[in-house]
Amino acid sequence: MTALTVLADDQFGAPTPDELFNLPPIIAGVDWFTKPVLLALLSTILVIGVCWAAFASPKVVPRGVQNVVEYGYMFVRDQVARPFLGKDADRWMGLLVSVFFLVLIWNVMGVIPLAQFPVASHIAFPAVLALSIYALKVYLGVKHQGAGGYFKNMMFPPGLPKPIYLLLAPIEFLSNMIIAPFTHAVRLFANMFAGHMLIAFFSMVGFWFLFEKLTPLGAGVGVVGVIMTIILTGFEMFIQFLQAFLFAMLAAMYIGGSLHPEH
């Protein structure tokens, strides 16, 4: 447990990002195989397994696991896909459901006992997902609007005086082609990173002042730490769900924007 090494000192030290996120390989010698990689693999298996269990032999009247997963599917369809894709929604449900559930499970790993590590707090994971969506967005835009049309619709919104386009086109290009995919990944990463830091900090406060160095004055601080850990864990679960939803929603928005130019 790397997080406990700070307790060797005589003074309380807040956990540093290096201790929390720079985890050693699980098997010595296999450097790439760390806890986030293991959790990402488990999440993938879990998502595939649950969907398989639910929809391998679907019943007209759903029961058990099919009932639960169908509820999640309907949520993605009604809240994520339909508002942005309209009649194209059903074609993209496979992708959107996979993205939503995968990111949700990645995030929820942050509060599952023993796992307790949000996969997306390593930026590589959300970055790969966001880049895939970005590649899809550009591909669909070029396919449906033509290479020239796609960039024209993006950089030259109709209804502006001609000379002003010269000034505004670079803003639109930077905003759509670079900042949008960047924030898509960073939003998820930063939320998970910060949430994990907060929970780790307060649980460390509780552990240190109640178990390691129990003093009459410190006990109160420790109790506050434990209470804050509980409150923040609840809050974090809400954020985990919200970020998974936003990630899938933005994916649907980018896809929809590529299928139909903005009006």
């Binding site: 339909r82 670079p170 803003i171 639109e172 930077l174 905003s175 670079i178 900042i179 928005m253």
Partner: peptide, 24 residues
């Protein structure tokens, strides 16, 4: 659903437009 879509498009692209303008 177009109205909700327009609103969401605006809400999500305004910050990145402002950022892009400042950056460029």
């Amino acid at each position: 659903e177009d109205d909700g879509q327009d609103f969401a498009n605006a809400a999500w692209s305004i910050p990145s437009s402002l950022l892009a303008g400042m950056a460029i």
